[in-house]
Amino acid sequence: MKATEGKYKYGMVINLDKCTGCGTCTVACAAENNLSVIRDETDKQRTISWMQLFKVTNGKPFPDTEVSYFPRPCMHCHNHTPCVSVCPPTATKMDYNNGIVSQIYTRCIGCRYCQAACPYQARYFNWWDGHFPKGTERYLSPEVSVRMRGVVEKCSFCHHRLMRAKEQAYAEDRRELEDGEYITACTEVCPAEAITFGDLNDPDSKVAKLSKHPQAFRLLERIGTEPKVYYISSKDWVRRMADNYHPNEFQPV
């Protein structure tokens, strides 16, 4: 299953120096994508949060302690996408034309093999039917279907926003989208503008340039999943957190 390169390859760069760990991306994602709420949202093993914050510390004692955050959307792995290849009813697929890994909720049978195969813990199962306190079904967006229990879901790079942007472009008689015309909800909302989103295949796009930044890296790069989500950090200890290294192997930039 060799990935045939498509025309577009949407990806993301998250600057961890800018990221303040505020969690707005998580909230905006939940609001944009009709994420369900379970009764106990502190159950971190079972809550659904497509954009999840991971907290890391440098492990030094007080007062040299530092914390940092990895906001983690779906990586939309480009190479032999681990979840896509294992899904028995083809409920998840990568669209080679834009690189987005989709999830068909009405197709998913809930076997959770994809969750087992994903090393980024980016996939979430609906252990419950979504709980919508009285009245809150009114904020649900018609652009994203509400999931039923028993299916797996994950970040879609706000695929419906791509559709929206394309429709807008067609309406204006344009074939191509401008850089920044299609961005995800988390990119849009980030108060520090730490997230950049766009087409990695377009050499002029901001995201493509940032992805080539010397301090740019990806999570678990050596496993070979080729994620389309990059991070930038000026801190060695943060960069070291992104992958497993043998002793003395890590090279500070």
Binding site: S85, P88, P89, A91, C108, C111, R112, N126, M148, V151
Partner: peptide, 16 residues
């Protein structure tokens, strides 16, 4: 074990 038992047959129907 599967979340959507009534869709179990999708494995055969939409086989990957």
């Amino acid at each position: 074990d599967i979340g959507q038992p009534i869709r179990g047959w999708f494995i055969f129907w939409h086989a990957n």
